[in-house]
Amino acid sequence: MRIMLIDDSKTMRNIQKSVLKQLGYTEIEEACDGQDALSKVAAFNPDLCLVDWNMPVMDGLTFVKTFRQKDKSTPLIMVTTEAEKSRVIEAIKAGVNNYVVKPFTPDLLSERITETLAKVSA
């Protein structure tokens, strides 16, 4: 299970990484913005991406739109804040499969990942 973490904050990536590790996911690639992520997806070929919304250079929504032009199936989970929640629908239309609001517990993230993967494979 290869997971790509896309977030401009190293702290956030580390937090999410430690949560993912607790959940048993070890193959993790990091990217610091949408652009960076796009340059890495081909080589890493993720099974799932966790995408932050607010990032410099290329934000999460733009990333999702660009990513979805080529890849219709790889599940994308948007990591949002309370304030960005009003725009989640926008992200859903752009093609994200699920979202999770910061801060999240390991349980919640695990649940979201399982739920997303189950839905995609269904």
């Binding site: 956030m12 937090i15 607010n54 410099p56 804040t81």
Partner: peptide, 17 residues
């Protein structure tokens, strides 16, 4: 840029309760 900086600080801090 300022907004993003604050946003990042807040996001991480919320995880750390």
């Amino acid at each position: 840029q300022i907004f993003r900086a604050l946003h990042t600080i807040k996001g991480s801090a919320s995880f750390l309760a």
